[in-house]
Amino acid sequence: MNWFLRFFTSSIGRKLIMSLTGLFLIVFLVIHLIGNLQLLNDDNGLSFNTYAYFMTTNGLIKTVSYGLYLFILLHAFQGILIAKVNKSSRKNRYVSNQGQVANWESRNMAILGILIFAFLLMHMGDFWLKMKMGQLDMVKYDGYDHPVKDLYGRVSIAFNQLWIVAIYVIGQIALYLHLKHGFASAFQTLGWNHPKYTPLIKSVGLVYAILIPLGFALIPLYIYFVK
C-alpha cells in the first residue's frame, strides 16, 4: 500500500490527525477569546464591531477560517469514528465496574466532543450565520467612513436571555473537561514525552483548560448580570 494511505489509516496516523487538528483548535481559541473580550468594553460596541468587521473582510483571515471549518469537521468526524472503534474493541463488558482507574474525561472525550459540537452549531447559528447572511442592523461610528454590522447588538440581545447564558456556561464546562485531558494528550500523541517537559506541558494544559473556558463563560455572564 502507498505509505500515505497506510499511515493515515493506521491507529497512530489517525491519532496524529486528532492531535494536530486539536492543537490547531487550541491556538484558534486563544485568538477567538482575545477578540471576543472586546465585548466587555463599555464603548457601545465600537471595538467589537470594528474587530468583527476586520475578521470577516480580511482576505488572509477568511482563508484561515476555511481551514478552521475543515479542521473542526475533521477532528469531530475522526474523533467519533475512533471512539466507535474503541467502544467496539470490548464487546463483552466487565461485570464489576468498580475498577476504573483512568479519569472520567479521558474516557469520555467523544461525549464531551459531541456536546461541544452541539454547542458550536447553536453558537454559529446565532452569530456566525447572522453575520454572514446579513440580517443585522448597521451602525455608523464617528470617525469611520462606512457603517458596520452591529454584531455587538445581536450578542447583547442573546446574552440577556438566561437560557442562552446557561447553555454557554454548560458548553464551556464541556470544553474545560475536553481540554483538561486533550491538551497534554495531544503532545503524548506527537511523541513529546520528556521527564523535563511533560510536567510543564501538563501544568500549562491545566491552566489553559481552566482559563480559556472561564474567559468565554465570563462574557455572557458579565453581559447578563453586570451590563
Partner: peptide, 20 residues
C-alpha cells in the same frame, strides 16, 4: 503497529489506565 491494528485492539486515548 500494523499487526497490532490487525488484531482488533482499540486505539490509545492516553488515559494512562495501563501504566497504573
Amino acid at each position: 503497529v500494523a499487526q497490532m491494528d490487525k488484531e482488533g485492539f482499540g486505539f490509545c486515548s492516553n488515559t494512562g489506565a495501563c501504566e497504573i
